[in-house]
Design a protein around this nucleic acid. Sequence first.
DNA 1: GGCGTGACAGTAAGCGTTTACTGTTGCCCG
DNA 2: CGGGCAACAGTAAACGCTTACTGTCACGCC
Lengths: 333, 333
Amino acid sequence: MAGVSIATASRVVSEADYPVSARTRERVLTAAKELDYVPNALARGLLKSQIPVVGVIVHDITDPYFAEVVRGVEDAAESGGYLVITCSSERDGAREASYVRLLRSMRAAGVIFAGSGLDDPASVEELPRHVAALRASGAAVVHLSPHAQGEPEISVDNRNGIASMVAALVELGHSRIAFLAGPSSLYVARERLAGYRHGLAEAGIPADERLIVGTGFSAEAGARAIDDILDAHLEPGTAFSAILCANDLLALGALQRLHEHGIDVPADVSVAGFDDIPVAAMTAPSLSTVRLPLREMGKRGFEAAIRALEGEQVMPETLPTEVVMRDSTGRRQ
Amino acid sequence: MAGVSIATASRVVSEADYPVSARTRERVLTAAKELDYVPNALARGLLKSQIPVVGVIVHDITDPYFAEVVRGVEDAAESGGYLVITCSSERDGAREASYVRLLRSMRAAGVIFAGSGLDDPASVEELPRHVAALRASGAAVVHLSPHAQGEPEISVDNRNGIASMVAALVELGHSRIAFLAGPSSLYVARERLAGYRHGLAEAGIPADERLIVGTGFSAEAGARAIDDILDAHLEPGTAFSAILCANDLLALGALQRLHEHGIDVPADVSVAGFDDIPVAAMTAPSLSTVRLPLREMGKRGFEAAIRALEGEQVMPETLPTEVVMRDSTGRRQ
DNA sequence: GGCGTGACAGTAAGCGTTTACTGTTGCCCG
DNA sequence: CGGGCAACAGTAAACGCTTACTGTCACGCC
């Protein structure tokens, strides 16, 4: 339509670094607009063996933690013209591996693992094969949490984050602090448990194993844990005066169940979470927690991927955490 | 490696409907496994002018409403080997159009609009062009909410949903019910407002315009609306005894701000939301709301897209809503 | 015995781009 | 005034796959 060869048209629309006269360029652009031309990313991708898409592997997009991270990736990706594919693995190694395979088949430019690694056969067999192939073909792989293959590219100091909340609770006069520990199959949960022990040790408080309860990572699990604690005849106020949770969802569930039991927060017991997901500020009472820069993690994750794509060496970064005291914690009565 | 032609190998790995002898097939499969062969989806897609990917356009993946819908799409998509691309438009027509253009450029098999339509120049100019092109090229386009182009393929009866909550509140003795209406720029908010008026009319209660407050669709907006109401010297208990919110996020914000003002829910005022996002069950008091089958909507949306792809006529479906009374509502004192 | 037929296997075209390479100008400089 | 070069423009190959088409062979039937 512009009366030029395909090559010339391509050079104009793809903004190639190749001289094209102003008149020709103009004609091509006019024709392109007229035809509502949109380049075929598949053809382009076939040539480059890469399509401007990054996959984000999360445990569950419905978990506000991951939604925030994905949003961070998305915001950073958007400006570069990248699209992001969300993959909820539901903590199933096979599903995770299958997603990564699909991402590999479509030559995604990068894969960002937002959730922490799993102890799962598929995660140690099929997954590493795909990850290696992805890397070999020039795709970027970045981790935002600890995992089987080692240290994450972008991380947050879970251990010291939890420890500083322990310190804050100790500061408020609490010495018997229960811990809802999350699932021990998750690397990140183990780090947080270590942080709890570390914080206690720092304060010179011996850990009471009866106060450490293994849980899932959901609100229901938090509510159930409260039931378990109460069933074990651990009296709030005497056996423990504060409950620290390995993530906010657990804390939310705990808060609700405590309310149902007529146990007042923070008068009878203080409750603290970890992550600072948006709803943490919206509960009544609002939840004291440790803020993780979730969106920022997503953003940095994407940026690290881009850097890797450009052949740069990516240096591991650790992002800061911050204790946020709200209304669910109070001085020990 | 298997000693066969590319065509034969293709027939085996793509499970084409073409006879291949058992021996040959075996050899190909063995070689494929040995080589860790993964087909190139881009090459395949280039040929078919379509790649097994669907885009979901949401306002914000961080909003639990959309996270649920996306998860529904994802779950349905996974079994078919489709990947889902999340696009948070942030209610910006230009950003939305740009996402759809990107989806078009990569020949996505479908685009699902999860959020309701926008009143925005870009949404009435660029967007329809891309949507038309997508449809013309055989891609499926499905809407889960009302929008400028008409009725959604999958929907929920917002109007009657709200109206039935009004009825439930009236049943509890409330007659002065404030309404946090959401943004009037959103089709869905307008439908809900209509439902509120309808419900009131059904109960023979005249609408008091002072009790209808325009808001955003966030928790902050809900909190602010409470401030506005109180600033207007509308006394809880006398001017109104219940607050109905156009979505749960608004209700969450309202709940928190009421708590801060020392106004007890439900003793002083009842609060109800709409959507039944997961956190609605986790607040204290837990939130009475209207359940929308969000995940199911996502799932149906994907299925409708597949049906459209197969050339089937897709019939509009309306999914049921259900009033869920929890602890934030009570009989009028 | 010739031939139609079914079961395979291979050849090659084509999907929409990008880009190395090959022209063709016109201009500058020695 | 001729050679060299910059500035363009076009040709064609290649990316990895699917599939229409073209064999080839063995078998069974008239």
